[in-house]
Design a protein around this nucleic acid. Structure first.
Lengths: 136, 136
DNA sequence: GGAAGTGGCGTTATATTATTACATACTTTC
DNA sequence: GAAAGTATGTAATAATATAACGCCACTTCC
């Protein structure tokens, strides 16, 4: 478990985090940029810089297999372990969960290998329950 | 466990697979393109099309967190389960392994959720044993 | 044999994602 | 208030990936 300080956000960081929270799902950096143009955003770097910090603070996760970003689903982004994501390829819905037992096993593997673990990516692609039961 | 047929490769597929095998580590699509220019490759699509097939055949894995590709490390790419990767951020070395117990736990989660799993990405970022013991 | 389908290939152009480089401003610290 | 650190704005560009088109080789089915 890693405790994340809950720092004061700068204006840009707050705007980016707000759009991700409001979206309720993953957004690409350029989608965020378009949403924030009316707030004065002009360039990708404004988004990427804010995202870097938000990811560092643990408030936003990067979805590697989508090249997109999503607000952490934990209330207040309180301290929690490594997250995993189930991504529905039909509706785009993303479920975040915390597979502690899986993380434990992976840590055991890294320790046996002498590998110093910095960051873990676990992403499941497939079809969510709703999309299976309600085929379009 | 999924059995992958070991199909005849086309000329382009064989060239792309050859560069990945020779490299012994991950390459980006554009790095492959540059390696294969002397073999007549001119455009990214030639690489991406071959990679798509090789990934489909299970002979090449895509590393989502690197936007790169790596030849499967299993001998002859025989049938095997979902792979995981430990990526050294210092030397770039990638270790492929097959964490069956982890996959089993993740499958249990998906079944409990009614999520139909199509593809699993597990990537560990950190520092390998050699780079820890021989700091530059 | 020929029509129709399939898959691979080559090429150009373009879309999407991310970073480099440089200048400016604000804030904290001493 | 000078120095150091952090955030910002902007333009330009790099890196990654796909769309659209036409061509050719092969099959298969009548």
């Amino acid at each position: 478990m890693i405790a994340h300080a809950q720092p004061e956000l700068t204006k840009n960081q707050a705007l980016v985090f707000g759009s991700l929270s409001d979206a309720g799902g993953p957004l690409t950096a350029y989608a965020i940029l378009d949403l924030l143009r009316e707030n004065g955003f002009r360039a990708p770097l404004q988004v990427y810089r804010a995202l870097d910090k938000l990811v560092e603070y643990g408030m936003v996760h990067r979805l590697e297999s989508l090249n997109a970003f999503v607000a952490c689903s934990h209330k207040g982004c309180a301290e929690h372990g490594t997250a995993a994501f189930a991504i529905c390829e039909n509706c785009g819905d993303v479920s975040e969960f915390t597979p502690d037992e899986v993380i434990k096993l992976l840590k055991e593997w890294t320790q046996a290998e002498g590998f110093t673990l910095a960051r873990t990516t676990i992403e499941l692609r497939g079809t969510c329950r709703d999309c299976i039961s309600q085929p379009n």
